[in-house]
């Protein structure tokens, strides 16, 4: 059963990448390409955060720690001019995971709002460190001057198509991996912890350990998106580690929906589109974004994909084909949200 879903995911993944590759050839507007690239980067960022927020019920307000660590470590290694892209990427992800392992060990001891603040506090310490450590990080100016992008396996990331396909491919691979995690017994345990802390203890689940592992996985995936972002700007900037960078994926989760696996990805797309369209029309982007968020919180009360999914499952139920409420969580409706 599990093996089958994995193969199915892989098949869909390959299909999506091929489709996106075709899209690149059909639509030649590079603005659309950039939109897809940023959707992938931020989509993965938001999806990884949703492992904590949606599946574990932990509101992390410092998710940019992984993102920034990935971007900076990768950027610094590439600037030496001696690293290949896959190697630097591997080290960047491992570094972010290691940092998350340390930070996570402290943070998972706290609950709810305290957890949110503690993750934020660690992120702000990282931000302060990046700003102060000028000789290494370039301080507030960021890593400047660019870096070479040596081709590997015939892929030359300085070519737009190669970079585009690389981002799409890496994102799809990570999404498939994330789905594997969520559908594994480990993933089910996370949802059980979210829904009923005490019962999980009684069932012998090592709650803190599981939370810690999820925290590390989420940070590692955030680092992957950070690496792709670094490649996008050929550098790294301190606002990658600023608190607002942690707020963005939370918006995406809110906009797209946290109950549905791909909700945050849709949220990332909406937010990017909103950004592109709104900034062309007005400089009061914050005002517009704020109103959109209010609409989602008070009007829709959940993300867009959640709304769609609820509609679909409602119709199915009426038609008599009873299925779980959500394709992944299976118990979305069990979780009352006001």
């Amino acid at each position: 059963m599990k093996h089958e879903t994995f193969l199915k995911d892989v098949a869909i993944g390959i299909g999506v990448v091929l489709l996106l590759a075709l899209l690149f050839q059909v639509i030649t507007d590079p603005g659309i390409h950039d939109l897809i690239i940023k959707t992938c980067i931020f989509g993965l960022f938001a999806l990884s955060l949703n492992l904590l927020v949606g599946y574990l019920g932990l509101v992390a307000f410092g998710h940019a720690t992984g993102f920034a660590t990935g971007a900076y470590v990768f950027g610094l290694l590439m600037q030496t001019g001696t690293w290949t892209i896959p190697a630097a990427m591997g080290v960047a992800v491992v570094a972010a995971a290691a940092l998350a392992a340390v930070i996570g060990a402290f943070c998972i001891r706290a609950r709810e709002i305290y957890f949110a603040f503690l993750t934020l506090a660690f992120q702000m310490i990282l931000y302060s460190a990046i700003i102060s450590f000028v000789s290494l990080t370039g301080g507030d100016q960021g890593l400047m001057g660019g870096y070479p992008k040596p081709p590997f396996l015939g892929i030359d990331l300085s070519r737009p198509f190669d970079y585009y396909l690389f981002v799409c491919g890496v994102t799809v691979i990570c999404v498939i991996l994330l789905r594997q995690v969520i559908q594994s017994p480990f993933g089910y345990a996370l949802r059980m912890i979210r829904d009923n802390h005490e019962r999980s203890y009684f069932l012998g689940i090592q709650v803190k350990l599981y939370q810690w592992i999820a925290f590390v996985i989420a940070s590692a995936l955030a680092a992957v998106s950070g690496v792709m972002m670094s490649l996008f700007v050929t550098g790294a900037f301190p606002n990658f580690a600023y608190w607002s960078m942690s707020a963005e994926p939370l918006f995406m989760i809110l906009l797209g929906g946290m109950q549905t696996f791909l909700g945050p990805l849709l949220g990332a797309f909406i937010l990017q589109l909103l950004n592109d369209l709104v900034t062309e029309h007005t400089r009061y982007y914050g005002l517009v974004l704020g109103l959109v968020i209010l609409f989602f919180i008070l009007g829709l009360r959940r993300g867009l994909l959640d709304v769609v999914w609820d509609k679909v499952s409602d119709r199915r139920r009426k038609a008599g084909t009873v299925r779980p409420a959500s394709p992944v969580t299976g118990d979305a409706e069990a979780r009352e949200r006001s």
Partner: peptide, 21 residues
């Protein structure tokens, strides 16, 4: 004229968009 909200990566995106699109 585009607002980049003082973000370097947004400036990079906007300029790419200017040039390409």
């Amino acid at each position: 004229i585009r607002d980049t909200k003082a973000k370097p990566e947004e400036a990079a995106r906007v300029v790419r968009d200017f040039i390409n699109s």
